[in-house]
Design a binder for these strands. Structure first.
Length: 260
DNA sequence: ATGACAGTCTGCGACTGA
């Protein structure tokens, strides 16, 4: 099962690139973030022509997550549990694959949290605490799962082109990094690091100041695997080709492949 | 450095993102 994740920064604008990616990468499951539209406005017919079904949690103008899949999603959860007052469309989770090799997959769009020291930063940290609590519940069920998406966290200085300049950025603050590590300490595996040890590999490059051309980016899109899912991993990589296109998203896809 | 870039709607400027 090939699972991919991509912050498309508007699914309407990125539709041609999305269709190209589905044709080229052929994922079984694709998690999307920042679709920036209502679920009813997702271009379902266009992706259906390529054989993909859509589950989406959207909102007007901002945020919004979706999961595309060849086979229908089961047992869908809309929204990250733990705060009934949270109305941001940032979390969608469902089960995919045959019952003998089922995988629970979540598409997550973790809050950015900038500027640090504001209510936005507090919201980010609270969201990460809820994600840790939710992951603990998933682990107790002993179902293989993959938490895929835009975490808005650079786990270490190796994941930032300018660690000094980003020292006080919400993406690099110790409060965010410690909560990301808490996910790892629960037993989750950073799929990319299973296969790639080298520093300065990125999934995001700012539109400004020629960051893409200079390869000055951030590694903030991650696929965290439960131990049972990690047992099955046979590959993981960042696909840089969509970022180089005209009118690209500022993020590029990451994917992993699980046996079975 | 008042900045850059890109998306959305409140729309031809303001807000958000990372």
């Amino acid at each position: 099962m090939k699972i991919a994740s991509w912050n498309v920064n508007s699914v309407k604008v990125r539709l041609p690139h999305l269709l190209d990616f589905l044709k080229n990468a052929q994922p079984d499951v694709l998690c999307l973030q920042e679709i920036k539209c209502l679920a009813d406005d997702f271009p379902r017919l266009e992706v259906a022509t390529l054989g993909y079904k859509v589950e989406a949690l959207g909102q007007r103008a901002y945020n919004g997550v979706a999961i595309l899949s060849r086979e229908p999603a089961r047992e869908i959860v809309f929204g990250l549990p733990g705060d009934d007052g949270d109305d941001h469309a940032r979390y969608l989770e469902a089960t995919f694959g045959p019952s003998g090799a089922a995988v629970r997959v979540a598409s997550i769009y973790l809050p950015n949290g900038n500027p640090s020291g504001t209510d936005k930063f507090t919201y980010k940290l609270g969201w990460m605490d809820r994600l840790n609590t939710h992951a603990a519940g998933l682990l107790r069920r002993e179902i293989p799962f993959v938490l895929a998406g835009d975490y808005n966290v650079c786990p270490t200085d190796d994941d930032v082109y300018d660690p000094v300049g980003f020292r006080d950025d919400a993406l690099c603050r110790i409060e965010a990094r410690s909560r990301f590590r808490a996910l790892l300490y629960q037993g989750l595996v950073d799929a990319y690091r299973v296969f790639h040890r080298e520093p300065h590999k990125y999934t995001y490059w700012d539109y400004q100041a020629g960051r893409w051309q200079r390869d000055e980016g951030l590694r903030i899109d991650h696929m965290l695997l439960s131990p049972h899912a990690a047992d099955r991993i046979v590959g993981c990589d960042i696909d840089k080709s969509p970022r180089g296109k005209e009118r690209a998203s500022d993020h590029t896809p990451i994917w992993c492949e699980l046996a079975g």
